[in-house]
Write a protein that binds this DNA or RNA. Structure first.
Lengths: 199, 199
DNA sequence: TATTTCCCTTGTCAAGTGACCAGTTAGACT
DNA sequence: AGTCTAACTGGTCACTTGACAAGGGAAATA
């Protein structure tokens, strides 16, 4: 393996481990040693590839949000037409599926968004604002509301679609069924689509 | 002030500080020293009143969930009647208002629910399961679905109602408006009620 | 008043934290 | 081949962590 390939592969292993660890425990409760162990490298190597824990966190966030925009290809707006509605429903369903496969997105959002610090500012400026602007340009998943309602609908949708998967262990303990099973994901996607964009 | 009163007042100050700190940073990233400082006491006093950090966390969770059940008085079921629907809408609106006033509830749920450990088990057994059973007995906020759908609807509602307030600093930075303003809370309550229990 | 109780303070402990650094080794250039 | 470069290791640093222990001092009790 060439040196560049080796470097990229190692960095990728570290970032993957960081995504998991940050999502499971949050930024403050994750140690660089735990991340290194999970990635199968030494802690020293971690600080070699990433200048600081914050730097690693940003790389992990890049990976998570990159996966989101890849999973939700930007479409042309279909204002109020019949195909527009089914397109919105399809977009909502793929968002639910992404939330089920990658609850890390939700955890990064909640973990960073709850207090006003550098990480939150960075996440808003770098990922959330562009993504949100793209949603608004698309018309958004609002249900009959005007543009001003969009933020509320956005957070309502994100929460409704993601929470059950973000607390999957709790949901399993509470209800006895694993929400990440394909049948459960499908049922949740149906529910969310019916709620936010009824046929 | 009598000795018992003093004791209770001090414990209450510590629990209040713990609720804030755990909600802001999560369990693992909260230090008992930060909590003690916020409560205006020494760290040693904290370990005197609460045997361990886990013990303090349970006391804080008791306070948060106690506030929830106090804010949502249990009602008689109104199956499918007209008053039943408006009662459900009213319950949803007070839940949204509680989520706006006490985003700690959501943070405790998400922080504990994301991995299968003792705290999650305790939260499910002690608070979530009884609360959820009460909701199901009430008929639940499902929209035309049968009983089997209840878990999905429950998590969808909880997420839709709470997320915007749980990440209020992020929402403010992203959209420029404070979601916890009374006008914003009212608008969100309207949206959630319309989504989950349309008139 | 004398004594006991118990809320509370200060100080300390081992374990863990992120960052850093001198060495080592193997791929890449000349 | 010989030199250089950069990925990687092991170890160390000051600092924070939760828990604990010895003692003070005021309220409760006798």
């Amino acid at each position: 393996m060439s040196r560049a390939e080796q470097r990229d592969a190692t960095r990728q292993r570290i970032v993957d481990a960081a995504v998991e660890t940050f999502a499971e425990h949050g930024f403050g409760a994750s140690s660089t040693r735990d991340i290194a162990t999970r990635a199968g490298v030494t802690q020293g190597l971690l600080t070699y590839h990433f200048a600081s824990k914050d730097d690693l966190w940003r790389a992990a966030a890049d990976q998570v949000f990159g996966g989101l925009v890849a999973a939700l290809p930007v479409r042309e707006p279909h204002p109020r037409s019949e195909e527009g509605r089914t397109a919105v429903r399809a977009a909502i369903r793929s968002y639910v599926r992404f939330a089920a496969d990658h609850p890390e997105l939700f955890h990064f959002m909640v973990d960073a968004g709850r207090h006003d610090d550098n990480r939150m500012r960075w996440l808003v400026d770098t990922h959330l604002a562009p993504f949100f602007a793209g949603l608004q340009a698309l018309g958004g998943p609002t249900r009959g509301g005007a543009g001003k309602l969009a933020p509320h609908a956005y957070y309502a949708l994100a929460g409704a679609a993601s929470l059950i998967f973000a607390v999957a262990p709790e949901c399993a303990a509470l209800t006895g069924t694993n929400p990440q099973s394909s049948a459960s994901v499908k049922r949740h996607a149906d529910l969310i689509a019916d709620l936010f964009a009824p046929e």
